[in-house]
Write a protein that binds this DNA or RNA. Structure first.
Lengths: 310, 310
DNA sequence: ATGAAAGCGCTAACAT
DNA sequence: ATGTTAGCGCTTTCAT
């Protein structure tokens, strides 16, 4: 009766409900979990929690999960395979009903070391395996749009700071960058491609290096605002000014982007919606195991701020 | 034998281990959870995940929990009692072994609506109830140190931006501020106390208001870097300069503090250690239920940067 | 409409 | 040193 299973007479209902109140009865979910072999828990793989983009996605995930009576188990991988395995192992032990992964570096391990068919949705990163649906943006279009814009304001030596040669979102943004250059008849110069970790310090160092090697650039497009913010500081510390000497465009539109001086032009990802969609997709999968959940592309937007406005 | 319970002969051990491999046996933890009525899960109450201070603490919590084979269930309350109750309710259903709370606004609900004695540790905020141990810094000393420093560089009209009249950390920092003023024979001016939410936008608006009312201030001390960063921007947007016109000091030393322009002087809290200590305290309590776990004060530090260096 | 009983997978206690 | 069994609290099926 506690699970509205059968028809219950109104009077017994009242009696039972009174008893529940009186005894202050709280069901022990551990029994239910074992019986149903489900836990209402979702494991969330994040590369790092220090990047405000992931934080925003997490908010969408948590909100939506809670509204559907699910809980979020947090796994910050820092790209560390040992940590990925630790959490994957707990998933294999039936402790979670499904996984949402924002960590591109976890896909291989998740796929190859998970024999049990635990439902997975990827968020923010396209998948290489069709068994896993994903939600994200069109990263080729995003890279194209950012680069095209920089070209339109007269910048023709644009450095591209990437964070990985293997992550799809990164590869795609670079592809967009190249397409825009090509369209403008500007030859692609591999010298202008740099790699950086996705944090301030790495962004700072990378930009410092670029400037030290004097490649004559007048703009930078980078795959993440964290890198862009480090770059802004490096430009200033080098005695140059942004945007006059070097314009900067990032991706993600983290809250800090609008607090910087100068404020940062960036491609905005719908982070919260990415999170909530990922949860909805996963719940769909959980409720209809045979259903093939479709991947989703959400819109993105170029937000023009001071770092590109002379 | 799977729980190294009794003496096992080496040969049987080998046999069993081989079988485990062969069958690819993964224990179903739901059975164990029910049996032991524990889940190896810790519920973490955070006011918000958008404040990088909490993010850093979370890293300490997650790392330490994982190293001890515990998992973190994330609850971002946003100060919302409904959300606090939702998660508290799941705690009552035996889904977590303990709670770490960084949310001052959750203490009442946790205490008054939890009859079951679920172990709790508070982190970053002193407790009003001795049943709950906490880990944090000496906030009176922190407020005193920051204010004393501003006085030492010749600032005598110092506005204090608070985030709450009821949170202990906030009250204590204000107390330290007042002590330092008193010591310098500067009368306390209630006009200089302002209240702001702990985010950029609120900090920005609050600072704008302060400037609009022209209280002749030459410095601001605020309880959080998030507010301070908003204030920095407001100062700039108002045509004033920091530190020349107004010096700014925050608290937390979030990573962004050193990326700002100017970089932000702040009181550094040992966020990661606060997180890891909170976990250790909770585990102590879990392992020795009768043991009285002692509260801990960790050291803090004034980090001087450009926002106070003329 | 209500009651009774089996069993989810594990662990701990007990018997061999 | 190994084998057996009861029972954690719930849900579900079957019997009344």
């Amino acid at each position: 009766m506690l699970n509205n299973h059968a028809y219950v007479s109104p009077k017994t209902r009242v009696i039972v409900e009174k008893a529940i109140k009186n005894l202050n009865y709280k069901p022990n979910m551990l029994g239910r979990n074992l019986r149903r072999s489900s836990t209402q828990m979702i494991l969330l793989f994040l590369p790092t929690i220090s990047n405000a983009f992931y934080t925003k996605v997490l908010e969408g995930v948590e909100d939506t999960a809670r509204k559907n009576n699910y809980y979020i188990l947090l796994c910050e991988t820092n790209g560390n395979p040992d940590i990925q395995r630790f959490y994957l192992n707990m998933a294999k032990q039936h402790l979670v009903d499904g996984i949402i992964s924002m960590d591109p570096s976890a896909e291989d391990i998740i796929l190859n070391e998970t024999d049990q068919h635990i439902p997975i949705v990827q968020c923010g990163e396209k998948t290489n395996d069709d068994r896993i649906p994903y939600v994200g943006i069109d990263n080729v279009a995003a890279g194209y749009k950012a680069t095209k814009y920089l070209l339109s304001i007269g910048r023709d030596r644009i450095s591209f700071i990437s964070s990985s040669k293997t992550y799809n979102y990164d590869i795609d943004r670079k592809l967009g960058y190249q397409q825009a250059l090509e369209e403008a008849n500007i030859p692609f110069d591999p010298e202008l491609i740099e790699y950086s970790d996705l944090d301030f310090d790495a962004g700072y160092q990378t930009m410092k290096n670029i400037l030290a090697n004097n490649k004559g650039i007048n703009a930078v497009f980078t795959v993440g605002d964290m890198i862009a913010i480090g770059a802004l500081k490096a430009i200033k510390d080098s005695g140059l000014t942004c945007p006059n000497d070097i314009a900067v465009v990032g991706v993600d539109n983290i809250p800090f982007a609008s607090m910087m001086n100068p404020t940062l032009t960036t491609i905005s990802q719908p982070s919260y919606e990415m999170g909530s969609n990922a949860v909805r997709m996963l719940l769909n999968k959980l409720n209809n195991p045979e259903l093939e959940v479709k991947s989703i592309l959400l819109p993105h937007e170029l937000i023009i701020r001071d770092s590109t406005m002379v």
